[in-house]
């Protein structure tokens, strides 16, 4: 097998794993087409990635990133122990607040957006994989802080209001739990309380080990 065949396999993996990010696909055929790979081998690859947990399907059959993918992402930051906590915490927080809830990793003043659950109150805000901070934030464990994030897409810089609560820190990274705020609105007491309560759950769970 030639070197290019291995590179091609990496490209196929990359394309399939990121296809659910771009649009919802409820069939393997849709996913294969979106990934731009040949259908002859595509079905086998989709099935293999679902079996390995890198892709999963929701109750409606739509493909999403699988638990293994999210776990690998956290492990890449040396924070794999956060992965099992993300789904229960974020879904509860989203259901309670109707705001988009997310986990993120702050490293070298860059915010790497992690898993998220979109709330109806902030559904208009499209999340980006990377953000910078508008000003250097004053973040400390367990204390929610209103923070404006900046993302740049081509030449357009967008500001996104968030409420962030750090839940854990390592030598290199800070893990934050956050809520997207409605444009033009600040954080209410209820949002702050909900975030405090949720962040406490994660902090205690991580410290308990």
């Amino acid at each position: 097998m030639t070197h290019s065949a291995y590179s091609r396999a990496v490209e196929l993996f990359d394309a399939l794993i990121h296809a659910p990010d771009k649009a919802p696909h409820a069939t393997p055929a849709g996913l294969i087409q979106a990934a731009g790979i040949p259908s002859s081998s595509g079905y086998r690859h989709v099935a293999a990635l679902e079996a390995e947990g890198f892709l999963r399907r929701n109750p409606a059959g739509t493909y999403l990133a699988g638990n293994s993918a999210i776990r690998t992402g956290f492990s890449g930051f040396g924070l794999g122990n956060v992965a099992p906590l993300s789904q229960p915490i974020l879904l509860r927080l989203r259901q309670a607040t109707q705001h988009t809830a997310f986990l993120a990793i702050v490293r070298d003043l860059d915010l790497h957006m992690g898993p998220y659950s979109v709330g109806r109150e902030t559904r208009g805000t499209n999340l980006q994989p990377f953000y910078g901070f508008e000003s250097i934030p004053n973040l400390s464990i367990g204390r929610p802080e209103e923070t404006v994030l900046r993302s740049q897409n081509e030449q357009v810089v967008r500001r996104t209001g968030t409420l962030l609560a750090p839940v854990s820190s390592t030598r290199e990274s800070l893990v934050v739990l956050g809520l997207i705020l409605q444009p033009g609105w600040g954080a209410t007491d209820q949002l702050i309380q909900s975030l405090e309560s949720a962040s406490q759950q994660i902090t205690e769970a991580l410290e308990g080990r």
Partner: peptide, 16 residues
Amino acid sequence: LGPKACGLVFAALEVP
């Protein structure tokens, strides 16, 4: 694991 693997952390948990 390299930077591309770290990028897998950015993921929607549900289809809204």
